[in-house]
């Protein structure tokens, strides 16, 4: 029996090693490549670890952002940091507004008894079945007409509406797990509905609100289609757009392209690992990310 237990463990760890390699391997190679000289990247066989650790491509991006054209670095490198800040602004605003408005919309769906409750919930969820590509066409047309194209505030607004259904769904299922007795106790003490939400539901839902906020941030950070279609200049480019400008340009050095990729995934990966418990619980109750 002991022998069998040992074999079981060996099989498990061999399988785990393969999964580990497949999961983080490709990304670690990207990180390793970003710290090498361009000419080292062209080595055959490839050089696995950077030796020495080269920071030139990272410096390029900072110099480019500060010095602009005078730095002599490629256009994409110069505008990258600004797009990075734009991404933070858009994803952060979307997360904050989505959780705030989503919580108020989720409360009646979880707790109040009114006509059309299930219709409202179904309508909110069904809105996500419409492919974003078909909505993008009129949205871009209207945005251009009313002068809202090329503004990051438009990106906040658009992303918000795609994230809100998820957030509402997530929060209403979380609110349902809060014991009704607590709410009743508050009502007996004379709290109004609004006070019940503010003093009982929201404080008790902090884990759920955190999950929803982090997921909203991550999904918005990775959004590409609308970021591409609604931006025309560095003022409104997000990091995914600049990464695509890098990736589709054959004249930029590999190491610059790779470094941009690495920097643009630092926030989402750091968030994902730091808040993994919140994310996994949120994912399992909401089933997200398309």
């Amino acid at each position: 029996m002991k022998q069998r237990a040992r074999i079981r463990l060996i099989v498990i760890y061999v399988a785990a090693a393969i999964v580990l390699l497949g999961t983080v391997g490709p990304f670690l190679w990207l990180v390793s490549s970003s710290f090498q000289y361009e000419r080292q990247l062209l080595n055959r066989p490839p050089q696995w670890l950077p030796n020495p650790i080269v920071l030139d491509s990272y410096r390029e991006i900072f110099e480019g952002a500060v010095l602009g054209e005078a730095s002599g670095v490629p256009y994409q490198s110069r505008i990258f940091l600004r797009s990075f800040a734009n991404s933070f602004f858009v994803a952060g605003s979307v997360a904050a507004i989505a959780v705030l408005t989503g919580a108020y919309a989720a409360y009646p769906l979880a707790r109040l008894d009114f006509r059309g409750r299930s219709t409202l919930l179904f309508g909110i969820l069904a809105s996500r079945l419409i492919p974003a590509l078909s909505l993008a066409i009129p949205i871009v047309l209207v945005a251009k007409q009313i002068g809202m194209s090329d503004k990051i505030i438009s990106l906040v607004f658009i992303n918000l509406s795609f994230i809100l259904p998820y957030v509402i769904w997530l929060l209403q299922s979380y609110f349902k797990t809060i014991p009704m007795e607590l709410e009743d106790a508050g009502r007996i003490d004379g709290c109004s509905r609004l006070q019940v939400v503010h003093k009982i539901i929201l404080p008790l839902s902090l884990p759920g609100l955190t999950s929803a906020g982090i997921l909203a941030f991550l999904l918005t950070w990775g959004e590409f289609l609308f970021a591409l279609l609604l931006s025309e200049s560095p003022a409104s480019y997000t990091s995914t757009v600049v990464v695509s400008l890098f990736a589709t340009d054959v004249d930029v050095s590999f190491v610059s392209i790779i470094t941009a990729g690495v920097i643009s995934v630092i926030p989402p990966i750091a968030f994902a690992l730091i808040f993994q418990r919140f994310i996994i619980s949120g994912l399992l109750s909401g089933s997200l990310k398309g």
């Binding site: 990775g222 990729g261 643009s264 994310i279």
Partner: peptide, 15 residues
């Protein structure tokens, strides 16, 4: 660690 690929935006994945 499964969340590492999950968190990578599709555009960066393509790159």
């Amino acid at each position: 660690l499964l969340l590492v690929p999950w968190a990578i935006p599709s555009v960066v994945n393509a790159l």
